[in-house]
Design a protein around this nucleic acid. Structure first.
Length: 911
RNA sequence: GCCGGCGUGGCGAAAUGGUAAACGCACCAGACUUAAAAUCUGUUGAGGUAAUUCUCUUGUCGGUUCGAGUCCGACCGCCGGCACCA
């Protein structure tokens, strides 16, 4: 590791010294409400990092990227007079720790502690200004207690549909609801359903987690199990709507919106052999074009409606689907498959008899698990109809076929039974391919081919899925799609054949895991009923187990702790544990009041740190990777809203402003990975170039949000810059000792140009930090440093301004220079830079005596002229016209126009 | 397939609709040195020219404008997310 490279400044000596001092003096301790030294008159600023999962590999260079950004903000905000909450903690439960523990035979607590130790050491070696007194660890009993308490808040609550808020279930008890009725609406509830079970991990996974673990080589299959669920779907609407006022990247907002997946449409009831089958559709306007129906293979009515002739085929298809993995089923490249049930459904709008099929392209988990197929206007239905030669009937066209009478709201809705006789029933379930059952002569009917780019006569080439105008649709004919939808829904509701329905893709959150290293549920089972244990029994910790390997038993490894399970002679503990998300859902709250043993957060701390900004979001700035766009960020918003509804919080959203740092790639432009061997270890960078160089380089690489490759040469570059800053204060003698630079002078700066650069720098750095544009702030400080290097004297006030600006970026170097200067110049402000006041720029120092005006002819640069800054527009224009170069390019042309931009340019338009 | 984001020197990048390439890397040259490293100073988008100059240049094509890297439209390429959601 050691290199013979001479260090440009003695960071190896002073960096650890400053770190120790900050640690022992608790320089960055942040008093809060209730502390004697808390100053409530200052505004608060809560700047948060996504806390790390303390893996065995230690920090990688991606961690310090976001952490340096927030540290710069935190340090600058402190200097600008804020009480800054800037904490760090550990997301320490989770599968990897347990997998590792199983492999090595060590208790996960032991390995987790060691990993945390290492992470903490690494973070301190980068000089982050965290208040380590507020450190939070999700596995601490004092933390687990409140995670379990919040779970019980969910358990004891339901979602009130009228107020759209969580309310205590005691409200329902007061109304006389039965136990069963209440259990059916709790926000934390037990549900038996097919879940994502991973046999080799021995646990179930949330939908959102499947990809991650599959990518790591684990298998996931569907299996019906009894599980704890959280009713996040109740909040779907609010989770979309309340995204609006947040300062999040639009892309992330959209990602969440799409994940929640709101669709507006209708439920329509079909009659299938006397059974009511409800379908969901977003295109009720195409009901007249439904030519068959499809049920998901898992649909509960499949067995009932299947005719004896089709029984064998249907059963074998259902069995085949059940054994298919989600991956196979989701594969879009495969052909559509399905089988006819032998049954027919009656289309309620025209009494047409349509065949009922089952097919795996219809999912049981979305909508009602049944669809009306409109092959003319849905690509998937179209593909299926083509394959199985089902009829295709166009009911929407691009343009209006005839003048439409204005839609009158008073217009009576037609009778459910059309006055015209129903069309002939199709007895044959497999009519000829590509049949288009329209074109029967009515003037306003169009052939399907008119709606597609296909040549007439051969049927449709593709489905027409856009909006248009209804045709072949009885009382909808001529209406644009939006109006046709509304009218059809009105008709369905009026005739009690269906209703308006909003459908979300979001599923309820599968919240239980069958693992050891997680929070046990504070729940007991007695006589088949679940019940909460009293708050006084929290935290409920996992029992000590010798062997915590998964058993393959879906109840999880805790079943081995027989003493622990036995809660009372008649009651047993729940043996499932919570997922890793539980702890990370609320850690930002705990930082505000980390040691409180009476509440998860005191009212006072909550009001100050989370409610103080008057905005919907509690945390002022949250920086982290994109990978949490739909997991952690959605879950935390959900919990926050529940706690808000129940009166425990005063804000509706956890994170006001969110910034995603971009991935740092390896030097080769590839994603960093052990197998490729392009991983950069921050420890190595620190020992070679120092912590300040690491910090500065990561900020100088490019815009924070951008993906960018690592470059050791780049680190060297910023290290050279820091060396120049150092040498603007000190010079080295023959023996290698640093002494005060003779160029330094505590006389006021008389160099106007230098002074202007100083104030430009203060302005730019101040503004750029506010916009998280750290790379450009650093550029400007390089410009100033270059000016100081070139200057014959280095005025102390100029250097001090630079040190203040640079302090949040390179705290060790700047504090060291400042401390040494303080010894020689007693006029300098006392104390560390980090506790001094942020510098102010003077507008008067920015003004220039002379300005350079660009002279363009027809938009092309032809000359540059210098004027006193007081020159008038007329003077400039006259001088511009007089310019020999301008004359040359104007030539014999006529001047059409003269455009003058004050202090910038003159453009002469010549024809 | 759908939804986002991004395309600027050899490289990382900068640029309220107004001098494209600031700052850094790399390269080259000079100063210091016996020499090297370090440091300091300077050169470097491409093409033409004797030239202080000219022409071209922000993925491609078109548009708006006195003026476009920036705004609008179409296309091409790369990256990320979702994926039979009816």
């Amino acid at each position: 590791m050691s290199s013979d490279r001479r260090k440009p400044f003695p960071f190896d000596v002073f960096e650890p010294r400053w770190q120790q001092r900050w640690d022992s003096e608790k320089t960055f301790r942040t008093p809060g409400p209730g502390d004697a030294d808390f100053d409530a008159s200052k505004p608060k600023y809560f700047v948060l990092d996504m806390f790390p999962y303390p893996s065995g590999a230690g920090l990688h260079v991606g961690h310090p990227e976001g952490y340096t950004a927030t540290d710069i903000i935190a340090r600058a905000k402190r200097m600008q007079g804020h009480n800054v909450l800037h904490p760090m903690g550990w997301d320490a439960f989770g599968l990897p720790a347990e997998q590792y523990a199983i492999k090595t035979g060590q208790h996960p607590r032991v390995t987790t502690e060691a990993n945390i130790e290492n992470f903490r050491r690494q973070l301190k070696a980068i000089g982050f200004s965290y208040d380590w007194d507020r450190e939070v660890n999700t596995t601490d009993p004092g933390y687990v207690r409140w995670t379990q308490w919040i779970f019980l808040q969910l358990y004891h609550s339901y979602f009130c549909e009228e107020t759209k808020k969580a309310r205590p279930v005691s409200d329902l008890e007061a109304k006389g609801w039965t136990r069963g009725q209440i259990d059916a609406v709790r926000l934390a509830f037990v549900h038996e359903a097919p879940v994502n079970w991973s046999p080799d991990l021995g646990t179930v996974l949330a939908n959102e987690e499947i990809e991650e673990w599959k990518a790591k080589g684990h298998t996931v299959e569907r299996r019906p199990l009894r599980q704890w669920m959280l009713r996040i779907t109740s909040y779907a609407e609010r989770l979309i709507d309340e995204l609006e006022p947040l300062d999040w990247p639009e892309g992330i907002k959209l990602l969440q919106k799409n994940w929640i997946g709101k669709s507006e449409g209708a439920e329509v009831d079909f009659d299938v052999q006397g059974q009511k089958v409800t379908v969901f559709t977003t295109r009720p306007d195409t009901l007249f074009g439904a030519t068959y129906m499809v049920l998901a293979p898992e649909h509960s009515l499949v067995a009932q409606i299947t005719t004896p002739e089709q029984k064998a085929a249907v059963e074998s298809y259902v069995t085949a689907c059940a054994s298919k993995s989600d991956m196979d089923r989701g594969d879009l490249n495969k052909d559509k498959s399905g089988v006819f049930t032998g049954a027919y459904a009656i289309n309620p709008v025209n009494q047409e008899k349509i065949p009922v099929w089952i097919a795996d392209y219809v999912m049981m988990g979305y909508g009602t698990g049944a669809i009306m197929a409109v092959p003319a206007h849905d690509e998937r239905d179209f593909e299926f109809a083509q394959k199985f030669s089902l009829p295709i009937k166009a009911v929407v066209q691009k343009t209006v076929a005839r003048p439409v009478p204005a839609l009158s709201e008073q217009e009576p809705l037609p009778d459910p039974l059309p006055s015209s006789p129903p069309p002939k029933l199709q007895a044959n379930p497999s009519p000829p391919a590509n049949q288009v059952s329209s074109n029967q002569g009515s003037a306003n009917e169009v052939s399907a081919s008119q709606c597609s780019e296909n040549k007439a006569g051969t049927g449709l080439a593709t489905a027409f899925c856009e909006q248009g105008f209804a045709v072949n649709s009885g009382f909808l004919d001529g209406l644009p799609t939006a109006e046709a939808k509304a009218k059809m829904i009105d008709w369905l509701e009026a005739n009690q054949l269906g209703k308006r329905r909003i459908q979300f893709k979001l599923r309820d959150w599968l919240f239980s895991r069958q693992r050891y290293w997680g929070e046990p549920f504070p729940i007991i089972w007695e006589n088949g009923n679940h019940a909460a244990i009293p708050d006084s029994e929290l935290p409920l910790l996992q029992p000590e187990l010798e062997d915590f390997k998964p058993t393959g038993d879906p109840r999880g490894p805790l079943i081995k702790a027989t003493d622990w399970i036995a809660y009372s002679p008649t009651a047993q503990r729940e043996t499932n544990t919570m997922p890793q998300w539980a702890g990370s859902c609320w850690y930002y709250l705990r930082y505000c009041d980390p040691k409180n043993s009476d509440r998860f957060i005191s009212k006072e701390a909550e009001a100050y740190w989370l409610g103080g900004s008057g905005k919907p979001g509690a945390v002022d700035l949250y920086v982290g990777g994109t990978e949490h766009a739909v997991l952690h960020l959605l879950y935390a918003r959900f919990w926050h809203k529940v706690l808000f509804d129940l009166g425990h919080l005063t804000t509706t959203e956890p994170f006001q402003k969110l910034v995603n740092q971009g991935l740092i790639l390896g030097e080769d432009g590839q994603k960093m990975s052990k197998s490729v061997g392009n991983v950069v270890n921050p420890d190595d960078v620190i020992s070679e170039y120092g912590a300040d160089s690491l910090r500065l380089y990561e900020m100088f690489m490019g815009p924070l949000e951008q993906v960018k490759p690592w470059s050791m040469k780049g680190v060297e570059g910023v290290s050279r810059f820091l060396g120049r800053v150092w040498r603007s204060a000190f010079e080295e003698n023959q023996a290698g000792a640093w002494s005060l630079h003779p160029k330094l002078s505590d006389a006021p700066c008389t160099d106007k140009a230098l002074r202007r650069v100083v104030h430009q720098t203060i302005k730019k750095v101040t503004e750029d930090i506010g916009e998280l544009s750290f790379n450009t702030a650093i550029s400007q400080m390089m410009v100033l440093t270059n000016a100081l290097t070139a200057s014959a004297t280095v005025p102390l006030e100029c250097l001090h301004a630079l040190l203040l600006c640079l302090n949040p970026f390179a705290p060790h170097l700047t504090e060291e220079i400042n401390a040494r200067l303080q010894e020689n110049f007693p006029t300098l402000p006392s104390g560390q830079l980090c506790s001094q006041t942020w510098p102010q720029w003077e507008e008067s120092a920015l003004v220039v005596d002379e300005m350079e005006i660009v002279i363009q002819v027809n938009g092309k640069l032809r000359d540059k002229l210098t004027f006193p800054s007081a020159a008038t527009d007329e003077e400039i224009k006259t001088a511009a016209m007089a310019s020999a170069r301008v004359q040359e390019f104007v030539g014999t042309g006529t001047i059409v126009k003269l455009i003058s931009v004050p202090k910038k340019l003159v453009n002469i338009v010549v024809k």
